[in-house]
């Protein structure tokens, strides 16, 4: 059994790493839960944003937050364009899965053509900075990520719950016809939500550029975990997505510390399967 300090440190880094799962899950959860579109290209968009941040940072020496300010609107437009396609062709759940999978593949090829399949690392002096609290180290970048994810998740949750637009969105997800009868313009709201999802992907991408090593194939690396997180946090629930992300991150990290690193990926799906066994109506 590892020492208390090690376990504590594992817990902290796990929760912080889980912030990334949560941030990625946020956009997916919204489009899946409220629009019934399974958006696999979310990961590819995040990586495109990461590569753009990397390019801006290394070639033009643009600071990450300015890069984010430039990348977010671009991704927003891409998200809207993608939704236009879905809207135009009246795409259902399965077809959305297929189409966005294909988009992700096409984007992967495009990224590979421009940036090659080599590993890329965006070195900033933030990446080694950490705060020491007692016996534990807290990396600054991950902490910033979690704070941003927390603000976004909390803000989106409040927005869905308190504002008219948010309530209309939830009503339309529950029953589109009745909501339309009460004057909810579901189509316009769907565009809004798709754009938001893509913008969240862009924000996640900026952090991916700062924290992770980039390679085109990495697009698929988080697919399983993040999907599990989306479901564990309940579809369409932004706070749930973030909390589930942190829960999974922490469990993975602790499983790694106690057993072996190889067992970490099993954790998320074991939790998911356990939840589904306990309550099949969870989704």
């Amino acid at each position: 059994m590892p020492s208390g300090t090690l376990l504590g440190q594992a817990l902290i880094s796990g929760v912080l790493a889980g912030g990334m799962y949560g941030l990625l899950a946020l956009g997916l959860s919204l489009s899946w839960g409220l629009l019934r579109l399974v958006n696999l290209s979310h990961f590819a968009l995040a990586f495109l944003a990461a590569y753009l941040t990397y390019e801006l940072g290394t070639t033009y020496h643009v600071a990450p937050w300015w890069a984010a300010a430039m990348v977010v609107p671009v991704m927003l437009m891409i998200g809207l364009a993608q939704h236009w396609l879905f809207d135009r062709f009246k795409v259902n759940e399965l077809a959305s899965l297929l189409i966005t999978f294909s988009f992700a593949v096409i984007l992967e090829v495009a990224i590979q053509l421009y940036w090659t399949a080599d590993y890329r690392r965006f070195e900033t002096h933030y990446s080694t900075m950490s705060i020491k609290v007692g016996a534990f180290y807290i990396p600054v970048l991950e902490l910033a990520l979690c704070m941003v994810a927390g603000v976004l998740a909390w803000g989106t949750w409040l927005w869905l719950r308190k504002t008219y637009v948010g309530k209309a969105l939830r009503a339309a997800a529950e029953d589109a016809d009745i909501a339309a009868a009460y004057g909810v313009d579901h189509k316009k709201l769907a565009y809004l939500l798709s754009g938001m999802g893509a913008a969240y992907a862009a924000i996640a991408g900026t952090f991916i550029a700062l924290i992770a090593t980039l390679a085109p194939a990495q697009i698929w690396a988080w697919l399983g975990v993040v999907f599990a997180v989306v479901i564990i946090g309940r579809l369409g629930n932004p706070l749930g997505a973030l909390l589930a992300g942190m829960l999974i991150g922490a469990s993975e990290s602790i499983a790694m510390a106690i057993f072996a690193p190889a067992w970490a990926p099993v954790v998320s799906f074991s939790v998911l399967i356990a939840i589904l066994l306990w309550d099949p109506e969870w989704l």
């Binding site: 999907f227 479901i231 998911l272 969870w282 989704l283």
Partner: peptide, 10 residues
């Protein structure tokens, strides 16, 4: 158990 989407994930 559960719906189509649950199946997908399981």
């Amino acid at each position: 158990r559960g719906t189509d989407l649950t199946r997908l994930m399981v």
